[in-house]
Deep mutational scan, measured.
Amino acid sequence: MATVKFKYKGEEKEVDISKIKKVWRVGKMISFTWDEGGGKTGRGAVSEKDAPKELLQMLEKQ
């Protein structure tokens, strides 16, 4: 499965696309949330040019 790689608060992170729940556009950035388990929700953002095609497809479906 595809993953999204991004930096959050200076830390490199990687999230499996299948865990992503919500995707939206903020200017030229793609923001998203995912389920971290245990009732926690993670947040992240990646530039439109660095976003994997699967993430962009999720954005178009909404």
Rank of each mutant, 00 (worst) to 15 (best):
M1A: 08
M1H: 14
M1I: 13
M1T: 08
A2G: 10
T3D: 01
T3W: 02
T3N: 03
V4H: 00
K5I: 04
K5F: 02
K5H: 03
K5C: 03
F6S: 02
F6E: 00
F6P: 01
F6H: 01
F6Q: 01
K7S: 05
K7I: 09
Y8D: 06
Y8L: 02
Y8K: 02
Y8N: 03
K9Y: 09
K9N: 09
K9G: 06
G10Q: 02
G10N: 04
G10F: 02
E11G: 13
E11W: 03
E11F: 07
E11Q: 10
E12K: 05
E12N: 06
E12I: 12
E12M: 15
K13Q: 06
K13C: 06
K13L: 10
K13T: 05
E14G: 01
E14S: 05
E14V: 09
E14M: 03
E14K: 03
E14D: 06
V15T: 03
V15I: 14
V15R: 01
V15W: 00
V15F: 01
V15L: 04
D16I: 10
D16H: 09
D16F: 12
D16N: 10
I17R: 02
I17G: 02
I17F: 02
S18A: 12
S18W: 13
S18N: 11
S18F: 15
S18I: 11
K19V: 11
K19T: 09
K19L: 14
K19Q: 10
K19F: 13
K19P: 01
I20L: 10
I20D: 00
I20T: 02
K21V: 14
K21G: 15
K21A: 15
K22A: 15
K22H: 15
K22D: 10
K22C: 15
K22W: 15
K22M: 14
V23M: 11
V23Q: 02
V23F: 08
V23I: 05
W24I: 03
W24G: 03
W24F: 06
R25G: 06
R25H: 05
R25P: 03
V26D: 06
G27Y: 14
G27Q: 14
G27T: 10
G27K: 09
K28E: 07
K28D: 10
M29G: 06
M29A: 14
M29L: 11
I30Q: 00
I30H: 01
I30V: 09
I30Y: 10
I30S: 00
S31A: 05
S31D: 10
S31C: 13
S31L: 05
F32N: 00
F32S: 01
F32M: 03
T33P: 00
T33N: 06
T33F: 07
W34Q: 00
D35L: 11
D35T: 09
D35V: 06
D35N: 14
D35M: 11
D35Y: 10
E36G: 04
E36Y: 07
G37K: 08
G37L: 13
G37N: 06
G37V: 10
G37R: 06
G38L: 09
G38C: 15
G38P: 07
G38K: 05
G38F: 12
G39E: 14
G39Y: 10
G39I: 10
K40E: 12
K40H: 12
K40Q: 15
T41R: 06
T41P: 07
T41L: 11
T41Q: 07
G42M: 12
G42P: 11
G42C: 15
G42R: 13
G42Q: 15
R43K: 14
R43E: 10
R43C: 15
R43D: 04
G44W: 14
G44M: 05
G44Y: 12
G44T: 07
G44L: 05
G44R: 01
A45T: 13
A45E: 15
A45W: 14
A45Y: 15
V46K: 02
V46D: 00
V46P: 00
S47A: 14
S47I: 14
S47R: 06
S47D: 13
E48D: 13
E48T: 04
K49D: 12
K49I: 12
K49A: 13
D50W: 13
D50N: 06
D50G: 07
A51W: 04
A51M: 08
A51V: 06
A51I: 07
A51P: 04
P52I: 07
P52W: 01
P52A: 05
P52G: 04
P52K: 02
K53I: 14
K53L: 11
K53V: 12
K53R: 04
K53T: 13
K53N: 08
K53G: 14
E54P: 06
E54L: 06
E54R: 05
E54Q: 08
L55M: 08
L55Y: 00
L55C: 01
L55E: 00
L56D: 03
L56F: 13
L56T: 13
L56S: 10
L56N: 06
L56V: 13
L56K: 12
L56P: 02
Q57S: 08
Q57F: 12
Q57Y: 14
Q57N: 09
Q57R: 07
M58W: 05
L59T: 07
L59Y: 10
L59D: 03
E60Y: 10
E60F: 07
E60S: 12
E60P: 10
E60W: 03
K61F: 11
K61S: 13
K61R: 04
Q62T: 10
Q62F: 04
Q62Y: 03
